[in-house]
Design a binder for these strands. Structure first.
Lengths: 342, 342
DNA sequence: TTGAAAGCGCTAACAG
DNA sequence: CTGTTAGCGCTTTCAA
């Protein structure tokens, strides 16, 4: 692939000026040109395999037409849907989507500033790592309007697109209630996270609606990693009374829970039912296969990109909750009625 | 974050010309400047929080100082290491690394050409999807020097960085041989893939070295997805004689194999031992936990980026095999001596 | 030791 | 209907 053709090259070959070429190629509606000229330009452009040089355009327009999606642990299967949605929406709007990792983004780092400072991207969609505090986030993004947060709410006036965590965690809990469980535990995220708080809220509400009491002794808030969730599970097994079922606020955590319960000889679902928040392909292959609640991550990706583009165009920041499609219960073998009805 | 400062702004405030600023900021060694001036420029730049506008520089230099890493299924945990290595190496060389997906890249698509055609990236590291043929690849990248393939060899003269698949698959096989197995099956990739061929070669060589016969009846070549590998496992269980152990040429496939064997009531490792090529965190949480061979993916990422940068600088394309660190056997519970010694 | 100026490829305002 | 031109921010040659 040799050097790419430039506008002036096309202009020369087509016997017109660069401005005509530019306007034809960009479909400028105010341009009144002879159809014949237009065709000739198009023809030459195709022959030369023309692609607009991005730097020239970016420099001129002072925007790059690129967006960054920055997430912790890019490689989690959980993000596949989010990514797909964002890619789709970006392409539809003729933006290029870059992917970055937020796990190494800490308060001190200026990776984000630099990305937009250098003009590489016009704005970004950010999913913060669970342990990134509001303060740290604030100092990172300052008053930049060119950002929308996903899954987590932002402090201050700034765009965000989140899942309906209350409904999702509620559905998981209701499923267990429907099976006849009354002592239902929660293995949740760390308390400082707004995500964790909403999921717990959904859990609490479901219990309440069913006339069940929420017991603080059945709630653990260690975090979403398999290791932390495993610890939480061990601790719940030792609780008195011991729960007959547990909702784990994250799939990866639930996988750790399964491992811990097996090690302790607690039969799933016989002695303990497990339902996880979020669905991913491994859930199908754990033992036993995990019952999960699938959340509309794809849609979050789509909406986030759209919201960001809208913000770039001057629209005010919005806080969006994705409710369509709703949470979906994926029943597998890790949940069943309690052995001895409570 | 307001508009970023420009060179001329700094020049004005520091009372010098833009060219001095540019050269000071870029540490031009040929520049002989009064230390005082230098300091003043640096000072002002810091105050204004200067970041070089990337489009201006790219336009001038005709290179973007950005590289793309294009892989199928960005969200596979398998790629986490590769990604980390590539990121590291790119940062070290002062390049920005963009991440793209290759799953939607087919022969017809011109995503790659466009990426470099537009000047967004100077070159890319590509991991092709397993089913992308040499021909399709060829038509995609033509004779472009701005590309390095990873894990797979390239047709023609083009850079590549691959794992030592022969050694890795060999180690997995030797482990089983060491446990006393003699009827060892292989669940491999599709035959058209060079990766699959090398892994099979490692398997064959290990058998041979141990004085064991390779039986075609114990080899399946359906592909690496959990579903395909599960089918292969079912077929192997029906084989006569049935293998007492199996090497699965990919972790994700191995997870599918475990599921299939459980469904068939074949005890692992009692009736069948399973060893997987590649290690990833879920391997720790399957049932039983998977014995795996961990390959130096991180190093592949590092080397690929370095090779690409070298190629961009005019070095001839190289074909590299990463042998350091070597394949590492991670013993978990899915492998054990055969119940009845063969 | 420093400055002036050209030009990378593009768009858009303005002039024919 | 089409062409000329300025200028986005940067690097670099050449001149002072």
């Amino acid at each position: 692939m040799a050097r790419m053709a430039t506008l002036s090259e096309i202009a020369r070959r087509a016997g017109v000026s660069v401005s005509v070429v530019s306007r034809v190629l960009n479909g400028d509606p105010t341009l009144r040109t002879r159809e014949e000229t237009r065709q000739r330009v198009l023809q030459v452009a195709k022959e030369l395999n023309y692609t607009a040089n991005y730097a020239g355009r970016a420099l001129r327009l002072a925007r790059s037409k690129a967006l960054a999606l920055v997430i912790p642990g890019v490689s989690s299967p959980l993000f596949a849907d989010l990514l797909a949605g964002a890619t789709e929406a970006a392409e539809a709007a003729d933006y290029t989507l870059l992917i970055g990792r937020s796990d190494r983004i800490t308060a001190g780092s200026d990776t984000l500033r630099r990305l937009v400072g250098e003009g590489r991207v016009d704005g970004f969609v950010l999913q913060r790592a669970d342990d990134l505090s509001d303060q740290a986030l604030e100092s990172l993004v300052a008053n930049d309007a060119r950002i929308v947060l996903v899954t987590s709410r932002a402090p201050g006036r700034r765009g965000s697109v989140i899942l309906d965590d209350v409904a999702g965690a509620g559905l998981a809990t209701e499923h267990l209630i429907g099976l006849g469980h009354t002592r239902i535990g929660l293995i949740g995220g760390i308390p400082s996270s707004d995500i964790a708080r909403r999921r717990e809220q959904g859990y609490s509400a479901a219990l309440h609606n069913a006339g069940l009491r929420k017991r603080e002794s059945l709630v653990r808030r260690f975090g979403y990693s398999p290791e932390m969730a495993a610890m939480a599970a061990e601790s719940l097994v030792a609780a008195d009374p011991r729960p007959s079922a547990v909702v784990v606020a994250n799939v990866n955590g639930a996988i750790g829970v399964l491992t811990a319960l097996r090690r302790l000889g607690v039969d799933v679902p016989g002695h303990m039912s497990v339902v996880a928040y979020h669905d991913e392909w491994v859930a199908e292959h754990t033992w036993p296969p995990l019952t999960t609640v699938k959340m509309p991550y794809y849609e979050v990706g789509v909406q986030a990109v759209r919201a960001l583009i809208a913000q770039l165009a001057g629209a005010p920041a919005q806080d969006i909750v994705v409710r369509e499609p709703g949470p979906l219960l994926v029943e597998r073998a890790s949940s069943a009625p309690p052995l001895s009805p409570a």
